[in-house]
Amino acid sequence: MNARRLVVCAFVFAILSPSAPARVMPFESHRAEPQNLSSDSPEENQAPRAAVMIRGQKDPRMELWFIAAYSTTNDACRTRSFGQAVWGAPMIAQTVYDSVRVPPGETNYSVQFFLDKYSPARCGWTAIAILRAAFLPDEANGPGGMSGLLAVRDNGADHISVSFLCTRRTYDYAEPHFYLECLTDAPSWPGDLLSKGGGVIEVEMLLVPGPPVPLVPGIPPKVLEPKPSLEHG
C-alpha cells in the first residue's frame, strides 16, 4: 500500500470510527504538515486548468469545510518531523491542505478548487484527495476533524454525486460537547474516484431532526430516523 493510499484510508477511517472527536479543529485556508520542508514547499501553477466544482444543498444551520489535499510523489522528497523521528516513524510524503468554507445561512452552495493548483516540480506535487468537515456553529466552535470525501486518481470520474445524513451527537467528559456524525448509504462510496482532470462533485448534507444522540463507548454509531430535512427543526 503506497503513501497516497495510506493518507486517503486514514481520512476514511475517521468517518467510520465510533470514537468522538476530542478537540476542535481551527479553520486554516492553507496548512502544511509538520514533516514538510520549507525548501520543498509547492509553487503555484500560473495557469491551472483542472477545476473541480463542489455544489449541492445543506441544512442552513450547518457550516461546511471542503479541503483539497496535495502530496509529494517523489520518494526523494519523503521526510519526517523531529517528533516523528524520535518515535522511529518512517519517512513519509509531504502534504499540504487548502480549505474553503460554506457558512451557515446558506442552503444551496458552490465552491471550487484547482487540482493542478501546484506545479509538480522536483517533488511531484499532486492532488490526492478531497476532504470534508461539518458542524453546527450554534453548538460547536468547529469540527472535530476532517473526513474523506473522494480520492483523486488518473482513472477517476468527472461527475460524482453523494448524499450524507448527519446526526447530532454529544459526549460529556467534563462538560457537554457536540458534533455531527455524517454517514452515507451509497453502495460505491468511498470507492468512487475523482478524475485528476477535474469535474463536478454534488454533495447533499441533510440533518436528521431530533435531540443529540449520546455517544456510548463500545456501541457503533448509527443514523436515526425520522427522515432528514433541509428545513429548520
Rank of each mutant, 00 (worst) to 15 (best):
F114A: 03
T79M: 02
E63D: 10
R61L: 15
D59E: 08
G105N: 02
R78Y: 15
V96R: 07
M62G: 00
S110Y: 01
P104G: 04
N108A: 13
F82K: 12
S110I: 03
S99E: 02
K58C: 01
Q84R: 05
W87G: 14
G83A: 14
A69Y: 02
N108M: 11
M91H: 13
G88P: 04
R80C: 06
A85I: 00
Y70C: 08
C77P: 04
G83C: 12
I67H: 00
G88K: 03
M91I: 12
V102D: 03
G105H: 02
V111K: 00
I67M: 06
T95F: 10
S71C: 11
V102G: 05
A93C: 12
I92L: 13
I92E: 13
A85M: 09
I67F: 00
Y70I: 01
R80F: 05
Q57P: 00
Q112L: 04
A68V: 01
M62N: 02
V86R: 10
F114G: 02
P103D: 08
V96L: 02
Y70V: 08
A89D: 10
A85Q: 10
W87P: 01
R61V: 13
A68N: 05
T95Y: 08
T95Q: 15
V86N: 01
F82G: 10
Q94S: 05
C77R: 04
E106S: 14
S110R: 09
N74G: 12
A89C: 12
R61P: 05
A76Y: 10
D98N: 07
N108C: 10
N74H: 12
P90C: 02
Q57L: 15
M62S: 01
G56N: 06
Q84K: 06
T95P: 04
T72Q: 09
C77N: 05
A68G: 11
T95G: 07
V111S: 01
I67Y: 00
I67P: 00
G56T: 07
S81N: 05
T73S: 15
V86Q: 07
S81W: 07
R61A: 15
T107P: 00
S99K: 00
T73Q: 12
W87N: 14
P103G: 11
W65C: 02
A69R: 09
T73D: 12
T95N: 12
V102H: 05
F114M: 09
N108G: 09
Y97T: 11
K58Y: 01
E106I: 13
F66I: 03
N108L: 11
K58Q: 13
